[in-house]
Simulated scan of single mutants.
Amino acid sequence: MTQTIEDMAEAMRLAMLRADPKLSRFDPLQRIISHDMFSEGHGGWSQLVGNYQGDLDTMLPGYAQHTSAMLSTLPHWDAGSHGGMGSSYALKIATRPRRGAQNAAIKRHTFRHRGKIRFETYFTFKPEATELKLGETDVRAVGFLFDLQSGDSDAGGERVMPHIRFLNALDGEHVQKWQFKRSNTEFQPVGEGDGVLSHYHLAPEGWEDLPGGRQRLCYNEIATKINWTYLCFDFDLDTMMPLALRCNDRELDVSGMDSIRMPAMKNLWCMLNFVFFAETDTDKRAFLYVDSVCISGDF
């Protein structure tokens, strides 16, 4: 069978990806937008700071609890350090030790083409190992979201925010299911006047279950052990709709999923932001560890 130039180019692209141990663990689309290995630094992932004006105390309480993500060797007291999946470091997102506390890390881009994008990562989560017991229900949830806005030439542009979380436990009961959110909290003015607005979209209200979204993830036998989990989410920037969600060996149904939507804001054109977040269900810190992230597009 005669191969076309396009077939040969695709075969060469796949061969190059598979020859690179850092990339062969992913299934990226044609163009890699960013590839973060946290042995090389933070890669642009920083604290999700809320809007404020005149004084940091004008920040909404949800944002005020956030702290900076850090690079971690995943240390533990019984055997030393895990390190990341492919290096000595992973990105660590840690909540405060207060039931219901949250933390988040954000990476900020803009897009140059409204096509399909793919978000892939390897992650794991644990509570802080302060007790000699498993603690499998101590982490309430971990998840991710996109913060997107259409281009400035679009009539009737939108800001669109797909949110997805794995609800691990609630009030001490194991839940283990995937959820999404399409309802938003109200915008509030911060500081004096109404020139700066803010909304805490990670508020606990408004989460809905993905159909068939129950999944039992690997959670090892003692509080210090970890196993890395693969996650892949496809989204179309043209239609602003989700396309596919995969976690390990499961394809999840996103056909009924929608996103938080609002009118476009005056200074966020072509925004392409990515956020990880974690929440604790007990008065101990929840840790979300991210080994690596690959963001790619079909352009």
Rank of each mutant, 00 (worst) to 15 (best):
V190A: 07
V142T: 08
G213Q: 05
E173H: 15
A244P: 07
E186D: 14
V196A: 11
H199T: 14
K177I: 11
K181M: 11
T239G: 02
D194K: 11
G151S: 14
D209G: 03
E186C: 03
N220P: 15
E208F: 03
A169S: 15
R165I: 11
L134Y: 00
E205I: 02
Q179L: 09
K225I: 00
E205A: 13
H163K: 10
L148N: 05
L197H: 10
G172N: 12
M161F: 08
K181S: 09
G151C: 07
P189Q: 08
V190L: 07
D238S: 14
L167I: 09
D138F: 03
H163V: 15
H201V: 05
T224N: 06
G195E: 13
R182H: 15
H174Y: 11
G195M: 06
S183P: 00
G143N: 02
L134T: 04
T229L: 07
M241V: 13
D209C: 04
Y219V: 05
S150V: 02
K133G: 00
T130N: 06
T224K: 01
G135W: 01
L145P: 00
E192Q: 10
R159A: 14
R140E: 11
G143K: 04
M240V: 10
F144R: 07
D238P: 00
G143C: 01
L145I: 00
L217S: 04
C218A: 14
S150Q: 14
K177Y: 08
A223R: 12
T224L: 00
T130K: 06
D154R: 12
A203D: 13
E136N: 09
M240W: 08
D152C: 08
V142W: 15
G206M: 02
F146C: 03
C218W: 03
W207V: 04
L210G: 03
V142P: 01
A141R: 10
F146W: 13
Y219D: 12
A203P: 02
D154T: 15
V139H: 00
E186L: 10
M161Q: 15
T229I: 15
E158G: 07
A169Y: 07
L197F: 07
P162E: 08
V142N: 01
G151L: 04
A129F: 00
T224S: 07
L202C: 06
E158N: 11
Y219C: 03
L148D: 02
H163T: 09
K133E: 08
